[in-house]
Nucleic acid binder design. Structure first.
Lengths: 200, 200
DNA sequence: CTTGAAAATTACACTCGGTGCGATAATATT
DNA sequence: AATATTATCGCACCGAGTGTAATTTTCAAG
């Protein structure tokens, strides 16, 4: 396999490692610049220079400037689906999502959430793509739910549950950011889900 | 008032009329070009030329290329709120929205809906903004509902209703376009709302 | 009808995001 | 060592969108 003594080490070649590092570097430096100078005022040239790559190479890692911020949003979606897989099998759909959501938001530093949210609000295009990503999350969530409850007669119900859950998360997230993170995210999340259960 | 004999005519001056006409001309010619050549392949120069204006003037009427398509989407949102105002006062919130939605979609030619939807799918940015506009519609709908049912204790419920209603409309619209308009929109809309009521 | 303000139109120059292409270097595979 | 993949880069190019300032068209008031 490997040319040298270490037979398999971490199972990660130089290429993979460098790729991961570069990706992360672009993200970090990019976000720092966004915070320093503002989203619009930060050019791709700035980011490329700060990350030590060429402008052209940036597009080898990200499809667009937006994607720097959007990739973070998408990561949350992935984490949610992962967390859902770890929730005990006996929970009801809506409760399972609630648990998963609480787990995920515990992993994300409040300051980061607020900073990213603020940045996203600077650009209409990014803000729009964020809403679009909610729709994607809804789809992913529904797919995950259907895997656990494959009964076809429940499809519409599960679709609805996914919709409501994402809605509740949106409400909680908005409240969190509007209050500047004064109240903890899990609390707001549980309130939103409680309100939901009460209404249904 | 007016220089000539006609004292007030239609209550519309030359300026207003020209503005309205130009706006409509840009929209029409633009959409025609989009259909002919594709969204991305149609440049603003093309549109400006076809509408008989300069490139710069285009931006006096629309904030961006996206907005040509988005303005149509937003019009639907406005129509929905209007229609909601004309629904009898005694209907339940969700039913009121259902009625309004059915009224509105009866006014929109199926071919137009399909054409616009196809165009919107050509651009990720437009598609994203479409999702964002759903969020706006949700807000507008909620505001309209709260006006009719001002009881503060119902706020969360109404917010939820608005969310669900927009969700149902999204489902119906998606189904409609996926099937290429084979089944009439009001039918799909009623089905979606029925499914919703059944689940709740 | 004239006049002065407000709104509409335009040209021009410029920035920046994003793409296509082709060359070159780094890594992986055999 | 030879060869294929993948990563990096430069360059030229397109098109969206903005700032500015000049010019024309409409409107309202005297």
């Amino acid at each position: 396999m490997t040319t040298r003594g270490r037979p398999d080490d971490a199972g990660e070649g130089v290429r993979q490692r460098k790729r991961r590092e570069t990706l992360q570097r672009i993200r970090d430096r990019g976000i720092c610049l966004f915070i320093e100078k503002g989203y619009a005022a930060t050019t791709l040239d700035d980011i490329a220079a700060a990350a030590g790559i060429s402008r052209r190479t940036f597009f080898y890692y990200f499809k667009s400037k937006d994607e720097i911020l959007l990739s973070l949003q998408n990561d949350v979606g992935d984490m949610l689906v992962d967390a859902l897989g770890r929730v005990p099998q006996d929970r009801r759909p809506l409760d399972a999502i609630r648990d998963a959501a609480v787990d995920v938001c515990a992993l994300i530093p409040a300051d980061d959430m607020i900073a990213i949210d603020r940045l996203m609000r600077e650009s209409d295009a990014v803000q729009a793509r964020k809403q679009a990503s909610y729709v994607e999350q809804e789809k992913a969530l529904f797919a995950a739910l259907r895997e656990r409850w494959p009964d076809p007669s429940r499809e519409t119900g599960l679709r609805l549950v996914a919709m409501l859950a994402i809605g509740a998360m949106r409400l909680a997230t908005d409240a969190f950011n509007r209050q500047g993170g004064k109240r903890p995210m899990p609390e707001l999340l549980n309130e939103a889900f409680d309100a939901l259960e009460a209404e249904i």
